[in-house]
Design a protein around this nucleic acid. Structure first.
Lengths: 233, 233
DNA sequence: GCGAAGATGACGGATTCATGACGGCTGTCA
DNA sequence: TGACAGCCGTCATGAATCCGTCATCTTCGC
């Protein structure tokens, strides 16, 4: 899979103590997360509506209503992953928190690395379900269905080979930017490839024969002389 | 994989201490789970292969290899939910366990109710993904009745064997996506199948002979050369 | 017009898949 | 229990096609 363009995961940190929020925020940002904050249940629900995060970290003791209730209210409208973060270690609270719909329950004082690992574990479980839709690229009149391994024009499938497809998908992911032969080689052929970089030219040509209406004067798959190739709409 | 919708969830309990296994088993059966046991990593992997449970409870200290390794080996072939259950409370171990692919990490001595709640929370997260397989799939003129184990065309039942049916159902569930031989092997033949992946080709062919009007030029069960197969309408 | 970079067409080796055949295993039925 | 049919995994073979390389031609920028 191409790790290209991986954005930082976003967290919503719900806790009434500014000092704890600050500590946690710094630690989590350090782990590479993008952190938003809320000081009470009301703000949390508002923030959730406004901009759904990837994971919610929810303290149990909040000024307006307790964390269990907030969690249940979140669940009424959303499947967002929720981790309870609280000082209450009693087993009954753990059960109550999980029953309220939380995915995990960790107790303060907490170790940032552990919290981060739990967030990652949860994301690992949740991500695939979310990623299900994203992979449809469109360039000009081409539709590139990455998981389907298929390119269509006017609903008609184009018979691309594996290498051609990977090459096209890579160029399409570059959003019109010029990609050098070396970049394409390493992404499509893999890092260990030591052959002639002219191989790119040949496959570019084969691609053009299939996706360009007039392969002799390409409109989409354009040469950037001395630099590489790029795909434009 | 719950072929069986509303039957009790099954757990695989991996721990080398018979006493602990007994206590846990009783507690978990009390909570309504169906519990299988394994005393070491080797047995665990074998049991997993034989009959995949809904959740694996994995002790860290095993006689043959440590739980981290076992977990990684499980992950190499399966997405089954794993909860580490261990006496080691050190935060480094928690992180290592989660990094090895576990979904949760709980420490002994443990409270049955809490463990049960964590299992439920995990299942809640995982089930929808499994349940996504609709009961009745339609592809082209085929109707695939998954729980009924039957495929009909024009109201007429096609005599598929078990393997053929599972293969077809898996492909139909993929919604036109390309599924690699490895994916199909692990889903249809199950975790840990080590035979030749050409077995997929052979069954694809047998399927084609039964579902395609012209098996020599398949319209539905299409080859994605170098990638795998996919089912299109 | 010249040199460099890219385009083009052809070719043989290497992959990859389709196909048919075979033997072992299992469950069934007498 | 023994015969039998059906299913499954393995294999050998042959065909399709994909891929990397090369030689040559064309185009572009100066």
């Amino acid at each position: 899979m191409s790790d290209t363009g991986r954005v930082a995961h976003s967290l919503l940190l719900v806790d009434d103590e500014p000092r704890i929020r600050r500590v946690l925020r710094l630690a989590l940002e350090d782990e590479g997360y993008q952190v938003a904050e809320a000081a009470n249940g009301y703000d949390a629900l508002a923030a959730l509506r406004r901009e759904p995060p990837d994971v919610v970290l929810l303290d149990l003791m909040l000024p307006d209503r307790d964390g269990f209730t907030v969690c249940r209210e979140i669940r009424r409208a959303s499947d967002v992953p929720v981790i309870m973060v609280t000082a209450r270690t009693d087993s009954h609270d753990v059960v109550a928190g999980l029953e309220a719909g939380a995915d995990d329950y960790v107790t303060k004082p907490l170790v940032a690395k552990e919290l981060s690992a739990r967030i990652r574990a949860l994301l690992r479980r949740v991500e695939p379900a979310n990623a299900r839709q994203a992979d449809l690229l469109e360039v000009g009149d081409l539709r590139i269905d990455v998981p389907g391994g298929e390119v269509t024009r006017d609903g008609e499938a184009l018979p691309l080979t594996r290498t051609e497809f990977k090459l096209l998908a890579e160029l399409a992911g570059g959003e019109g930017k010029v990609l050098s032969r070396e970049q394409l080689l390493s992404k499509v052929w893999g890092y260990g490839y030591f052959g002639d970089s002219r191989i790119v030219d040949v496959h570019i040509r084969r691609l053009r024969l299939k996706i360009e209406r007039d392969p002799a004067s390409p409109k989409h798959l354009v040469t950037a002389r001395g630099l590489g190739y790029r795909l434009v709409s």
